[in-house]
Design a protein around this nucleic acid. Structure first.
Length: 876
RNA sequence: GGGCUCGUGGUCUAGCUGGUUAUGACGCUUCCCUUACAAGGAAGAGGCCGGUGGUUCGAAUCCGCCCGAGCCCA
């Protein structure tokens, strides 16, 4: 029985433990009847040791959907994935164990990583459980596990066999210090001192160019001269326009390269003419792709110059730079050398300037099927709908296929070998997966193409998105059935997934790639619906980031506020909109918890003798009115949960509970029960209260569970108690509304008269239909004698103006509306037979309403109550 | 630089298929200890709906431009 103050610390921890121990949220898994499952494909967070507040927000929104559907009788599949297949966890393992991944066989290092991650995963689990998210803890997976590796490799093989993958040479970002490829997100900008070298290039003699014509190029990297493949001039650069279409001769190395024009030339830097080398920076790569330039690879993996550099081959790039500068000077080609600082791309981990290398890389073909992928996106329901635009724009802006190769030493390997002689691709057998070609043998003894018997293993690994994009397949147990020679699902009833949650920042990567891959593997769009969540901002509406130091730690919040208060906060904005962290929002949640708790204590004390059954026909007007109003609220609320309008669901339910139930109804009902043992009221209180607990349960998961067990059923969780259906009770809504307005008017009267709310009032007259509610009004407002008037009391009405219905007047009279307004303002109008004659036109009765102020001249004091009139008589 | 989204009292928001009185909550002011709750109740103040043009009889709402914020891409 609820008593005293609500103690969330104890209550929440108790239920979190019990939910886990009792497996309250376990997925039953009825494969027979796929319609009962409601499956969620929740993107797994990166295991790096801490969950941030954004995770809490995202998971809480998913939990609203999960709990609502569970209440509606669905068998909810809510899994949890640990994303430990990535750079973050690789580094974690290296740091914790004091090792380098290069020193281990890939599989072994992954086992070590998995072990290190286990501790962090346990922490994740504990934290998620302490947030009360209704995850089924029997359904977890790790992206580094052999099972996931198998699925990733199966995916690769399937796409290859479908002809959706190809291999091509392309630039990769390379750290010469770590001797590894890195992704663009692992680079950062760094200001470094350097030198600008002004170097004279000769123009190759032609019909329009004389033999000794030269121009100047400014570069910080003269060692890249041997890699120069073109020279660029800006289209707006009138002075140098004559060079476009000619050829330039590179000093010292003498290769002749085209002079082209391109808008990406920075006119402000150096001479405004720039050389393009393969590759010095990102722009060089763009030029290479845009202008179909040659490749001249002058620097290798270790930062050493190659044979392309002729006599400089074998030197490090620093050594080569110095020698080349010296030789240029000797030749007279070095016109100037000056110190500058400039921004360079460095590896965030070691600070070394990155190089661009050209590597063979695997691609998933996308560009030929963008229309289909767009259509696939359209087949899903988007919450909110507007976020589909981002998916659409992303697809429409695609310019390259998806590169899935990463030249890293750990990660999930490509299950591929190449024939040493003819480069024929040999794939692993599906039943043998996962494999690592670096340690495992290919499945054939000789090349099926040329018969050669030596193979080169592919040493690249998959881009992590290539694995992250398979979570629906991981969850549904996708696998290759050797007997039947087809792909199968262990839990086919889960696919398509009913809900895919996703942050709006990664729609383009995570969601898009997942849709593409699953669509290609199954021929079906993986998700029935997508729910996009916004970002959590700090209290000043700024993005949370470690460097700003404005990150909110979940632990801190939860130690200060109840988890249910955080859940209340999370329901505070439209899905898809960013939400600022707000302690005020959390406090509002606490207030609601307190209100619910206190109201429940009261209901408990009033319903001890409540009958289990009561014919609804025999309930009093007020009781039927309350239940019928609750019916309406349930319908509204259900619709809002269905359309994932959590904020409206929350505020609507809160308002109804707080004002209508606690404010209007409970005040009356408690007197009826206390003073007369009213069974109708006691029954209604209990029915309504049970329903409120169910309705609040998706949001206030802990408090409702505690109250439910205390008051109604210690055996079953409120979260499995079933969503209430409307009772279909008949009621006179209008009379009920009027009665509540009369009560409100009497409260205002007392407030204005500085009377206490339980002060007695001698006599009240009411004009207006409150039939059936008279006794309720009297008892709650302590009215000795309440009289309803059949006739409108003698009220003197003073016309104060005319209220036009512009939605009718506007279309009818158009430009005359302002004249009508002016005439009314000036009082120049009259009513004739119900019509309003004004400014030379006649308005129909439905177009206007005469506004009047009512003054009561009789005895007692008049209080307005909407359309009703209340007259208070005090004997004094 | 390009695309998308957002901008409403001090704060967070509803409304945004155009209709004149802009919703609710938090905070604030005044009053009320009424035995569920004073962390409650009643009343009240506070917004020219980011700015600026336009469409219209009428714009928070539709359109153009500008400013600011967030995200993605370059």
């Amino acid at each position: 029985m609820p008593s005293g103050e609500y103690d969330p610390d104890t209550v929440e921890a108790k239920w979190q433990d019990r939910w886990v121990d009792d497996e309250t949220y376990a997925y039953e898994g009825d494969v027979e009847n796929p319609d009962t499952a409601f499956s969620i494909d929740s993107p797994p967070p990166t295991v790096s040791g801490s969950l941030h507040w954004g995770h809490v927000y995202g998971f809480t929104l998913q939990d609203f959907v999960a709990r609502f559907n569970r209440m509606r009788g669905k068998d909810v599949y809510f899994p949890f994935g640990y994303d430990d297949n990535g750079i973050a966890s690789e580094r974690l393992a290296e740091d914790e164990l004091g090792v380098r991944h290069q020193d281990y066989e890939r599989r072994e290092f992954q086992r070590m990583t998995q072990e290190v991650c286990e501790q962090y995963e346990a922490e994740f689990t504990e934290k998620m459980q302490s947030l009360g998210i209704s995850i089924d803890w029997n359904q977890t997976y790790q992206t580094i596990s052999p099972k996931t590796q198998r699925i990733s490799q199966l995916s690769f093989i399937d796409l290859y066999e479908q002809g959706r993958e190809y291999r091509q040479r392309a630039p990769a970002i390379w750290c010469p210090e770590c001797e590894t490829a890195i992704s663009q997100v692992e680079t950062e900008d760094d200001e470094q001192p350097s030198h600008f070298h002004d170097i004279a290039f000769e123009v190759v003699e032609s019909d329009s160019i004389d033999a000794d014509e030269t121009f100047t190029i400014s570069t910080t990297r003269p060692e890249l001269l041997p890699a120069c493949v073109a020279v660029f001039v800006h289209p707006d650069d009138d002075e140098n326009q004559y060079l476009v279409g000619e050829e330039a001769r590179v000093p010292l190395f003498d290769q002749e390269v085209p002079i082209l024009e391109d808008e990406r030339v920075d006119l402000e830097t150096g001479s405004g003419i720039v050389m393009c080398c393969t590759f010095g920076d990102q722009t060089d790569i763009e030029w290479y792709q845009a202008h179909d330039l040659d490749l001249r690879l002058a620097i290798d993996e270790s930062g050493t110059l190659t044979d392309v550099a002729g006599e400089y081959a074998g030197l490090s790039s620093e050594e080569a730079r110095e020698e080349i500068v010296d030789d240029l000077e000797e030749d007279g080609a070095l016109l100037d050398r000056r110190a500058i600082t400039h921004t360079v791309n460095v590896h965030e981990r070691c600070g070394t300037s990155v190089e661009f290398l050209v590597k063979d890389q695997w691609y998933v073909e996308l560009l030929d099927k963008t229309d289909e992928y767009l259509e696939a996106g359209r087949e899903m329901d988007w919450y909110p709908e507007k976020m589909f635009t981002r998916y659409k724009n992303w697809i429409e802006g695609l310019q390259w296929d998806w590169s899935i190769s990463r030249q890293r030493s750990s990660g999930i390997p490509f299950p591929v070998w190449y024939c040493e002689a003819c480069e024929h691709v040999v794939l692993a057998e599906k039943e043998n997966l996962p494999v690592d070609p670096l340690s495992d043998e290919p499945p054939v003894d000789a090349c099926p193409e040329c018969g050669h018997d030596e193979f080169v293993p592919e040493d690249d690994v998959f881009d992590t998105w290539a694995t992250s994009s398979l979570t629906p397949l991981i969850n549904a147990g996708w696998d290759w059935d050797v007997e039947r020679e087809e792909f199968t699902f262990e839990n086919p009833e889960l696919y398509q997934f009913d809900l895919r949650p996703q942050g709006h920042d990664i729609i383009s990567f995570w969601l898009f790639h997942t849709v593409v891959k699953c669509y290609e593997h199954t021929g079906e769009v993986p998700f029935d619906s997508v729910m996009i969540n916004g970002m959590v901002l700090d209290e000043n509406r700024e993005k949370m980031s470690k460097s700003k130091g404005n990150v909110v730690a979940p632990d801190e919040v939860v130690s200060k506020f109840p988890v249910d208060a955080a859940r209340y906060w999370a329901a505070g904005s439209a899905v898809g909109d960013d939400l600022p962290y707000s302690e005020k929002g959390l406090r509002a949640g606490e207030k609601l918890l307190r209100k619910l708790w206190n109201a429940s204590k009261l209901v408990e004390s009033l319903t001890e003798d409540a009958p289990a059954e009561f014919d609804h026909e025999d309930l009093t007007q007020l009781d039927r009115w309350l239940l019928a109003s609750l019916d309406r609220e349930i319908e509204r609320l259900t619709g809002r949960f269905e359309s994932r309008e959590f904020s409206k669901a929350r505020d609507g339910l809160r308002g109804f509970f707080w004002h209508t139930f606690c404010g209007d109804y409970l005040e009356i009902a408690k007197q009826r029960v206390r003073e007369g043992g009213d069974a109708s009221a006691a029954y209604t209180l209990e029915v309504a209260h049970r329903r409120f607990l169910k309705l609040f349960s998706p949001i206030l998961a802990h408090a409702t569970e505690e109250l439910w067990h205390d008051m109604y059923d210690d055996g079953e969780s409120v979260h499995h108690s079933g969503w209430p259906e409307p009772l279909g009770v008949d009621a006179d809504f209008e009379a009920g509304e009027t009665a509540m307005e009369v009560v409100g008017a009497l409260r205002k009267y007392k407030s204005d008269a500085k009377l206490s709310m339980n002060a007695e009032i001698d006599r009240v007259e009411v004009w207006g239909d409150v039939s059936g509610f008279e006794a309720d009004i009297s008892s709650v407002m302590h009215v000795e004698e309440l009289e309803t008037l059949d006739e409108r009391p003698a009220v003197e009405s003073v016309v104060t103006g005319v209220d036009l219905d512009y939605s009718l007047v506007g279309p009818e009279f158009g430009s005359q509306v302002s004249a009508i307004d002016d005439a009314i303002e000036a009082g120049e109008y009259e009513t004739v037979d119900g019509e309003l004659h004004v400014a030379g036109v006649e308005l129909e009765p439905e177009m206007f309403e005469i506004e009047e102020e009512r003054q009561y001249l009789g005895e007692g004091e008049m209080v307005e109550a909407g359309d009703a009139i209340v007259i208070v008589h005090e004997e004094a």
